[in-house]
């Protein structure tokens, strides 16, 4: 598991993809930060982290699209699947590699809270809570992206699948308002954004944390299933 994680993580930095993504991310964040300061909002940091999480819609699909798809295309999948590593370990390794790149990006973004702390007196607990929510939702989206990547050997298709899925998840609460009764409840239950918004308000709820982690775990399990299934049916 660690071998795969190390390799994939390094591979992000061997190609321009990680640098381009981080650069793009930081540039957009800078613009957001700048305009947020202009508005003069009191809880600037939670606003800021919320806009960071909306950026994930673009960042995560690009980050995860090659994870599984590239191995399938290059035939290196054979190497992984005929090694003594279990499928779960392989998928977790891939997930952790992408997640670590995500964490590196998150770490880079910490410069903005630091600026705020130096310049004013923001609610530090609120910043921590927002960031915790952000990291958890990032984990969910990364695992979703990995799952999308396992469905196809075409990276672009993988990116589109995860982009659409992330968009749906981000907006499922909005969709719920069109329905009433059971469907409304089901959609709201699935909606991750409501729980995420709690973090942004400074509410750290253990159920929400568990919910997010389970959400991510579901996609990892699904990815394992997809790979196992392929071995049994087609090869």
């Amino acid at each position: 598991m660690l071998a795969i994680m190390r390799r994939d993580f390094r591979s992000y930095f061997n190609s321009p993809i990680a640098y381009v993504l981080i650069g793009l991310f930081m540039l957009l964040l800078g613009l957001f930060f700048n305009s947020l300061i202009g508005y003069g909002i009191s809880d600037i940091m939670s606003e800021f982290v919320a806009s960071m999480s909306s950026l994930l819609l673009i960042i995560i699909p690009i980050l995860t699209m090659r994870s599984m798809a590239e191995d399938k295309k290059n035939g290196t999948e054979v190497l992984l699947l005929t090694s003594p590593a279990r499928v779960t370990e392989i998928v977790l390794g891939k997930f952790l590699a992408s997640f670590c790149v995500f964490l590196v990006m998150t770490a880079a973004s910490l410069i903005f809270p630091l600026i705020t702390i130096m310049a004013g007196k923001p609610d530090i607990m609120l910043i921590i809570s927002s960031y915790l929510g952000y990291i958890l939702i990032g984990a969910v989206f990364v695992s979703l992206g990995i799952f999308a990547s396992s469905l196809t050997e075409n990276q672009i298709v993988a990116a589109i699948i995860s982009l659409v899925s992330i968009f749906l998840i981000q907006n499922i609460g909005y969709l719920a308002s069109f329905f009433s009764g059971f469907l409304n409840k089901a959609f709201l239950w699935l909606s991750i954004m409501d729980r995420y918004n709690d973090f942004n308000k400074g509410i750290i709820d253990l159920t929400s944390i568990m919910f997010m982690i389970s959400y991510a775990a579901v996609f990892i399990v699904l990815t394992v299933r997809v790979i196992e299934h392929k071995r049994w049916s087609q090869g």
Binding site: L2, A3, I4, R6, R7, R10, S11, N14, S15, N74, G75, T76, E77, V78, L79, L80, T82, S83, P84, A85
Partner: peptide, 30 residues
């Protein structure tokens, strides 16, 4: 799988690695 070394029809190589890095990875994986 611990006892098998496999060279498939298309060698499963990571093109973005050096030979040394690649073999290190394989050893790590196995």
């Amino acid at each position: 799988k611990k006892h098998i070394g496999y060279l498939p029809e298309h060698p499963p190589l990571y093109l973005d690695m050096t030979v040394k890095e690649y073999l290190d990875f394989c050893a790590d994986l196995k």
